[in-house]
Amino acid sequence: MLSLLNSMPGAVAQGLIWGIMAIGLYITYKVLDVADLTVDGTLCTGGAVCVMMMLSGHGVGVSMLVAFIAGMCAGLVTGVFHTVMGIPAILAGILTQLSLYSVNLKIMGKANQALNVRNYDLLVSMQYNRNTNPLNNTIFIVIIFTVVLIAVLYWFFGTEAGSGIRATGCNENMSRAQGINTNLNKVIGLVLSNGIVALSGSLLAQYQGFADVQMGRGAIVIGLAAVIIGEAIFGKVFRSFALHLVSVTLGAIIYYIVYQVVIWRGIDPDLLKMLSAIVVAVFLAVPYIRTTYFARPANRKGGGGDA
């Protein structure tokens, strides 16, 4: 039991970092209504770029900024595949993700690169979870990061430009009829989303002390799990856009706490990815099964729309 409690700060820190990734995913999955598989590659790109930049002597701020830009470039590629070349969004994401595997190997020169916390001035690290001064504490720093990110996104999606992106995700037909450039908005959404995912990747690489070409595998499933868990638990209470993003973060933390409990109970870690996939599959299936197999006739009032 003590070992479980001891692992909690780590679970929360990891959950927070993955929560940032899940916020990026929320932009494509919920706002744009596109499942963007690029993120599996982008997460590693963010980590790889950050680690390599720091190894070559750059500061952590610049390194993370470049990682953010690298992620945005990956999103741009997917966006161009999808809108200019007419490739379905899922396939466009898979294509970019696959090519990012090679790109990430080339960035790092090998399959993984370590970043020793004792030699570099990192923003976050699992060494900083406890026994450091609070301002250096990883959990504290990532919370600040998340709050700022949510505030910026809340602002952006409230602007004219951001509203256009939300409308594009809701109803493309209507958006074009209202003079909104839907293709451009999809690209902007993908760019922004992948930038945020790469940022999360750069934090994750610092946290664990290395970047690995496999680190993004299944990231989209973990991100979706966070979105779905957050929605399932807090959806009824948290209604505004900003609170939705908060619930995504909380979803990611809960995911990692459950993850730690599962490990503590002695379940084979090899099975964890499959368990994650099953959790997401079940949560995605429930609304469908409810409406398809247990449908009750809707009791709608007011002038019927479908006479």
């Binding site: 952006f156 602007t159 004219e160 430009a161 509203s163 809701c170 209507m174 209202q178 003079g179 909104i180």
Partner: peptide
């Protein structure tokens, strides 16, 4: 746009043809 509010829908339409700024 079904998931957006009535006023948000109207605001989108009020900006038809204008550039969408920050």
């Amino acid at each position: 746009a079904a998931q957006m509010q009535i006023d948000e829908n109207l605001a989108l339409a009020a900006r038809r043809g204008a550039s969408r700024t920050l």
